[in-house]
C-alpha cells in the first residue's frame, strides 16, 4: 500500500479516560496503525515522549495534572512532531489557543472514527510527505521530495506553484479541495482573483500527470467547487 510508511508512525495518545483511550486505539488499529502508546497524565506522557520518541500525538485538553496546551508546549520543546487535540471543549477560544501554540489540528468530541482517521492521515501526509518514496497515480507518480513527476520513465519537474497545488490536493487525496483553498495554498491569504491562474496551473499539472489531459482520471474537476486528486491504493 502506498501509505504503508505512514502506518508505521509512533502514536502517543493522552486522555484521562481509559475507555476513550481504548476506543481510539481500536479505531487506529483498524486503520492499520500499530505503534501506539497511551498515557493518562501529563507526567506519563512526558515520560513516554522522552523514551519512545512519538511521531504524532493526540492530546486531550483537560488532564488531571495540567492542561493539554501546556503538555503540547513541553512535548514540542523536545522534539517537533504534529499534535492533534481531541477535546470536549468546543469553545472557539480554546481552538485559537490550540492553534496559536502550534497545534496541527483540533477535534471536538464526539467524533466518528472516519473523521478522526481522516484528520490523522491528513496530518501525517502533510508532516511526513518528504519521506514518501512516491505517490502513485493512475498514469504517473509524484515525487514530492524532488518536486517532480515520473511518467513513462520520464522525469518532469514541477514549478513551485504546481508543487503547492499538488501538495494541497494530496493532503486531501480522494476529497474535493475548493478553488479558494487551492488559491490560498498557492498564493497565500486573500487570494482573490486568481481563479483563472489556478485553471492554467491545473491544466499544466494535468499535462504532466495525465495520459490524456482532456480526459483527466487523476485530477478531477468538480464543477464550480474545486478539484479532487485520485491516488492509487487509497
Amino acid at each position: 500500500m502506498n501509505f504503508d510508511y505512514l502506518r508505521q508512525k509512533r502514536f502517543l495518545l493522552v486522555d484521562d479516560e481509559q475507555e476513550l483511550l481504548d476506543m481510539v486505539v481500536s479505531i487506529l488499529n483498524e486503520d492499520g496503525f500499530q505503534n501506539i502508546q497511551t498515557a493518562k497524565t501529563v507526567k506519563e506522557a512526558i515520560a513516554i515522549s522522552e523514551t519512545w520518541h512519538p511521531e504524532i500525538a493526540i492530546l486531550d485538553v483537560m488532564l488531571p495534572d495540567g492542561s493539554g496546551f501546556n503538555l503540547m508546549e513541553k512535548l514540542k520543546s523536545t522534539s517537533d512532531y504534529p499534535v492533534l487535540f481531541l477535546t470536549a471543549r468546543g469553545e472557539d477560544e480554546d481552538k485559537f489557543r490550540g492553534f496559536g501554540l502550534g497545534a496541527d489540528d483540533y477535534m471536538v468530541k464526539p467524533f466518528l472514527p472516519k473523521e478522526l482517521l481522516f484528520r490523522v492521515n491528513a496530518i501525517l501526509r502533510r508532516s511526513y510527505k518528504d519521506e514518501n518514496p512516491l505517490v502513485k497515480l493512475q498514469n504517473s507518480e509524484i515525487d514530492f521530495d524532488r518536486a517532480e513527476i515520473i511518467k513513462n520513465g520520464e522525469h518532469i519537474p514541477l514549478t513551485a506553484k504546481e508543487y503547492d497545488i499538488l501538495a494541497a490536493l494530496y493532503r486531501n487525496a480522494g476529497r474535493i479541495v475548493t478553488i479558494d483553498a487551492l488559491c490560498e495554498a498557492a498564493w497565500g491569504d486573500n487570494p482573490f482573483g486568481y481563479e483563472n491562474s489556478l485553471m492554467a496551473h491545473i491544466r499544466r499539472i494535468r499535462e504532466k500527470i495525465e495520459t490524456n489531459p482532456s480526459h483527466p482520471v487523476s485530477l478531477i474537476t468538480i464543477k464550480g467547487l474545486g478539484y479532487k486528486l485520485i491516488v492509487e491504493g487509497k
Partner: peptide
C-alpha cells in the same frame, strides 16, 4: 454539553466501528 461529549464519543466511536 461538555459533560455529554465524552460519553457520546464512545457511543459514536464504537457504533461507527460496528457500522463499518
Amino acid at each position: 454539553s461538555h459533560d455529554i461529549r465524552t460519553p457520546l464519543s464512545m457511543v459514536m466511536g464504537y457504533a461507527g466501528q460496528l457500522e463499518n
